[in-house]
Amino acid sequence: MSELLRVENLSVAFRTRGGIVRALETVSFSIARGETVALVGESGSGKSVTAYAAMGILDPAGQVTGGRIVFDGIDLTEASEREIEDLRGREMSMIFQNPRAALNPIRRIGTQIADVLLRHGNIRRADAPAEAVRLLAQVGIPDPARRSRAYPFELSGGMCQRVMIAIALACAPSLLIADEPTTGLDVTTQAVAMDLVRDLARERQMATLLITHDLALASEYCDRVVVMHAGHVVESGPVAELLAAPRHPYTARLLAATPRPGIALGDLAAIPGELPDLRRAAAGVCRFAGRCDRRRDDCAGSLPPIPPGPLHDAACWNPL
């Protein structure tokens, strides 16, 4: 499989009043064409920052302080704003967590889809409305011609999310980044939306980066998993292998805290401690050490790197 996105030693820092937040440190992973990769980890681990950096939409307070993001052979950290603007929306697009907030409340949804098509697609103005209706039908919206004239508030949360998917897929991107796309949706609606993304991805050989808290969701829909903790990639590998035999103590702890059939409350265990303060974290060493029960003296040494790629790897001095 050929590589589409390669994130290499990416570091991102935010300037805040309380000091510099080292949100990402030497993050590396890759996604091949047509592959679905999950990015998992606790709240605050850096999943969204990774996605925003890849899309070139970091908050102005944030800065890429090191590393590269290579998309289809183009180094985005060197590319001009125009080049990135052109890729974004056409070649790579993103679905955000809150679909209603991401849609323009005073524009009809069909018009919003047409806008995207006209901005990025090869389409005549006269054909855009019909194409928008076709896209709504494709994401399973009943009565798409009528619905294309609706405003976002007239649609349920599940339908808004499908509209977001339709917009994200309007220009047939080769990479879709979905940041917690189903948070706030019912599981029944989540299943329909995720099936839809998976089926469209298969049909078009589209690569997907699925950001989620939910290991079960990752296990059902993804080929590989990248686990983040406190701004580091701590483990990555093929989904079945990583879940069956996690190597990083953090991944093992995360699994041991996840409710699932056949496991009683007494069998579940919380992860000790809390995420370290990213303003004070020492550079280049394991950020899980303060919470880890497998820690040894050499854990204070510089972190074993995880190279981007499909192999199963853990950034740990004493892996399981």
Partner: peptide, 12 residues
């Protein structure tokens, strides 16, 4: 329908 929509932590 509700139960069949719940994602499962599966290896297969």
């Amino acid at each position: 329908a509700l139960l069949s929509a719940v994602p499962e932590l599966t290896l297969e």
